[in-house]
Amino acid sequence: MAEITYREALKRALREELARDPEVVVWGEDIVAYGGGGAYAVTAGLAKEFPGRIRDTPIAEEAIVGVGIGAAMGGMRPVVELMTINFALVAWDQIVNHAAKQHHMFNGTINVPMVMRSPAGFGRTAATHSQNFDAWLASIPGLKVAAPATPYDAKGLLKTAIRDNDPVFFIEHLALYGTRGEVPDEEYLIPLGVSERKHAGKDVTIVTWGRMLVETLKAVKTLSAEGIEPDVIDLRTLRPMDLSLAIESLKKTNRAIVVEEGWRSVGLGAEVAASLQEQAFNYLDAPVARVAGLEVPMPYARNLEHATLPFADDVVAAVHAMMANKY
């Protein structure tokens, strides 16, 4: 099995689906022209392999998503790329009021089999370009939301998303594009809405996804050396959200921490914590704790950016506090 990057895994998923189904098309800003393959080179080279099916669009996100919705309603399977998730704000009406609702408002007669791919994250891009909308997107009925953390999951979930008959928002974290992982050459799919245990442990349940899974697994190395073994559950899909593994784990560890990058208030950590106490109240030996980003517009300076976001050491600190009964 070859080790490839997250970026390459996404490209392979696109390539395989483009080859498999002639209705699959990929549209986005600069995905052909700009250095060949979008701002983050996910589509590099695909335009030559699939002439006419990879297209540049104007800088008009509302139109990009809107055209995707129309094409999907007409029977195509468009994958639209939003250059950064921050630009999804411009297309919010299309995403929330159209993509997510058509099927339901027309009595199930219309499907919108579209994927919206977009990188979230940070990298000295300051307040308006360094945001995390995981929680917002995951709260929209009618929309499915995937946020894979590994190349393996990215490929398997993107292929499933393209074949799904509902609109799927596919969140790709900037920090993950260069990460590597084993991806088999043969074809495989990963169902939407199924979480996975990424590290088996017995002491505390950590529920996370996306970039924070990578940070959590770094923290696990430190903690394992100290004899603390967290049970790490990767949600992979944020809507529908599968908490069955997390609940099973909590019943064993009796402690849980939700680790997210986004803002703490009204975040997905709050949602997970609420669900855990609803479904496993009698097994909780401490309040469900949250590790989250600070609630400030992102500063530009690197040290302040770092201070704003959670990293592995924050996860270690939270686990230490949990194991010392400080929550």
Binding site: L294, V296, L304, A307, T308, D313, D314, A317, A321, K326
Partner: peptide, 12 residues
């Protein structure tokens, strides 16, 4: 300050 809040969170 946000950094103080973060330090407080980290140090409990």
């Amino acid at each position: 300050t946000p950094v103080a809040q973060r330090a407080a969170q980290k140090l409990g």
